[in-house]
Design a protein around this nucleic acid. Sequence first.
DNA 1: TTTTTATTGAAAATCGTTTTCAATAAGTAT
DNA 2: ATACTTATTGAAAACGATTTTCAATAAAAA
Lengths: 138, 138
Amino acid sequence: MSTEIWISQLQDNGYRITSARRAVVDTVYGSTHALTPIEVYDKARKKYRALGLVTVYRTLEKLEELHLIQRVHQPIGCQAFISAGVGHQHLLLCQNCGQVEFFDGDDLDSLTKNIARKTGYQIKEHWLQLFGLCVDCR
Amino acid sequence: MSTEIWISQLQDNGYRITSARRAVVDTVYGSTHALTPIEVYDKARKKYRALGLVTVYRTLEKLEELHLIQRVHQPIGCQAFISAGVGHQHLLLCQNCGQVEFFDGDDLDSLTKNIARKTGYQIKEHWLQLFGLCVDCR
DNA sequence: TTTTTATTGAAAATCGTTTTCAATAAGTAT
DNA sequence: ATACTTATTGAAAACGATTTTCAATAAAAA
């Protein structure tokens, strides 16, 4: 698995491959931390100086549309993005260093069925996210 | 339970009770839908016309600080607030009408312990939110 | 009632994001 | 390789949401 997977995805969906997009993909792909558009901009500009912030926004938009990245919601803000895991994944975030781990937690079925019965809701989706301290920070 | 609970809380924490704050509290307290600052402004101005948007922001800030309201995170945006439930509560949101229900789902203990063991993380907090269709909308 | 000072709304400033637009460069056809 | 078409680019401007500044006001204390 390398950045070429994302590049191919962009290509297959009719998007052109440019130096700007490569720089953004190289920056976000495989990052262990969720990155905001400005953070992506700062990092990616080390690889491609002419990159504009607008292009970062536009590229992130496309990567999100192709489900290659996902927005991360946190108490401090909801502008950061991280690589989208494969299949239905949940996030575990380190409150100290911001590192992100994925886990699949579909033990939630019995819980959601329970709530559905109690409330009368037809449940379609769920968001689950854990916060704590990673091995290095605890 | 009435809005006076929130008013007292403000008072007890050294904040003055004003017409502007009463209008905001009256609007947000007991609302079954999460409201954005602008929505609060529009609704509250029906009760107190001189109210300014800035004061809405400032009052919401104080209510959040006192844990009387909480920010609601949704795919469409994360600016809306709703009354904070009592104790540790989770949210169930109707994707159609925006109605919000609370539920307590601490069946998560075994799941979080599991993840903690697998990842080495020390887990401090969790966010769980369900989305679906309420009884009226399904 | 008087005094003190937190609170107010309006205007300006600020921040993140989106739109506009002419120049450029990617991919295709020649 | 070369020419052509058109998606993509970055800069500047526009935008919307939120925050700051500030003099006037009103709540609470004296």
